[in-house]
Simulated scan of single mutants.
Amino acid sequence: MHVPPIIHPYFFELCNIDLCLSKSKRIKLLGAVKPLGNGDPHKAVSSKIVWHLNWLGNVDDNVNTLYIKEIVNLVWENEKACHENPNAKHEIADEDYDHAIITECMKTYFRNIHKQASEQCSHRQAVTKSRRQAASAYETQSGNKGAVVMIDTDFASNILSYDSEEDLSADTLSRWERAKLVKLVFYVEGSKWCSVDYVAFLCWLSLCNMQKNKEHNEPDMDAADDTARPPATKRRRTNNTQKHCKKVFDLALAKMNDNKPKSHKKNVPFKSMVSAVWACDHTDDKFLDGTEWLTGFYEKTAQGALIKEDEEYLQELQRWHEKEMDGEMDADEMAV
Rank of each mutant, 00 (worst) to 15 (best):
Y10Q: 09
Y10H: 15
F11T: 01
L14V: 06
C15T: 05
C15V: 06
L19W: 08
C20R: 15
S22W: 03
K25D: 08
L29F: 04
L30D: 00
G31I: 00
V33A: 02
D40H: 15
V45A: 03
S46H: 11
W51R: 07
W55E: 00
N58G: 08
N62W: 07
L66E: 08
L66A: 09
Y67G: 01
K80A: 08
C82E: 10
C82L: 04
E84S: 15
K89M: 08
K89L: 06
I92G: 01
D94G: 06
Y97H: 10
I101P: 00
M106Y: 02
T108R: 14
I113K: 07
Q116D: 09
C121Q: 12
S122Q: 10
K129C: 05
Q133D: 09
A134Q: 02
A134F: 03
S136N: 13
G146C: 04
V149P: 02
V149W: 09
I151K: 03
I151R: 02
F155T: 02
L160T: 05
S161A: 07
S169N: 12
D171R: 09
V182S: 13
Y198N: 05
A200N: 05
W204L: 14
N209V: 03
M210Y: 04
K212D: 03
K212M: 08
K212L: 03
E215L: 07
N217P: 03
E218Q: 14
D220I: 10
R229W: 00
R229E: 11
R229S: 14
R235K: 13
R236G: 14
K243R: 14
H244W: 14
K246G: 05
K247Q: 12
A252L: 12
H264V: 13
N267M: 11
V274K: 03
V274D: 00
S275K: 10
A276Q: 11
D284K: 15
D284S: 15
L288N: 14
G290C: 04
L294S: 06
G296T: 05
Y298G: 08
A302C: 13
G304H: 09
L306C: 06
I307R: 06
W320C: 09
E324I: 06
E324G: 15
M325H: 12
D332L: 13
M334T: 11
M334L: 13
